[in-house]
């Protein structure tokens, strides 16, 4: 994770963007609706199935973190899908957390812990994952290779 790089914005050369924001209440149906819109936009922009899998997984984990660990009742979701990159921002308005303080789930002693893998998977599957200073907003970027 590089905390110093700015969030990439859609560039003028990007076309057919799917850009929207939404307030998503805690509840499976609302967040599934957003997930369906996201996947439709990603597939519509021609991303391969491995990218769709990665983006879906990261979206799931980010929303789960916001609702379960952040204790959010509503999250602000921002999505930008262009032919070149996908940017997803989730703000849970909670107290936030220090992502660097999350125990390493790959450490031998943590391997059998039932939780703590979400952030690692987000980092693994997305090109970039960054948090704001208070740790209640996560921005995930998938750059098309």
């Amino acid at each position: 994770m590089n905390a110093h790089r700015p969030v990439p914005s859609p560039q003028p050369g990007d076309h057919a963007p799917g850009v929207w924001s939404a307030k998503v209440p805690k509840g499976v149906d609302d967040y599934r609706e957003q997930e369906a819109l996201l996947l439709e936009a990603v597939q519509g922009a021609g991303y391969p199935s491995a990218a769709v899998f990665a983006i879906r997984l990261a979206f799931e984990e980010a929303m789960m973190n916001a609702f379960k660990h952040g204790g959010a009742e509503v999250v602000d979701l921002g999505v930008s899908v262009t032919a070149r990159r996908v940017v997803i921002t989730v703000n849970d308005y909670g107290p936030g957390y220090d992502p660097d303080a999350v125990p390493d789930p790959l450490a031998e002693e943590n391997l059998e812990l039932p939780s703590g893998r979400g952030l690692m998977l987000m980092r693994q599957y997305m090109t970039e994952v960054r948090h704001n200073e208070s740790g209640n907003t996560v921005t995930m970027v998938y750059e098309r290779s």
């Binding site: 899998f53 879906r56 997984l57 799931e60 984990e61 789960m64 059998e112 812990l113 039932p114 939780s115 893998r117 979400g118 998977l121």
Partner: peptide
């Protein structure tokens, strides 16, 4: 086709 880290957690509990 898809599972989340929460599902992995449940599998670990089952394993234990």
């Amino acid at each position: 086709d898809h599972l989340s880290s929460a599902a992995l957690g449940t599998l670990i509990t089952i394993h234990q």
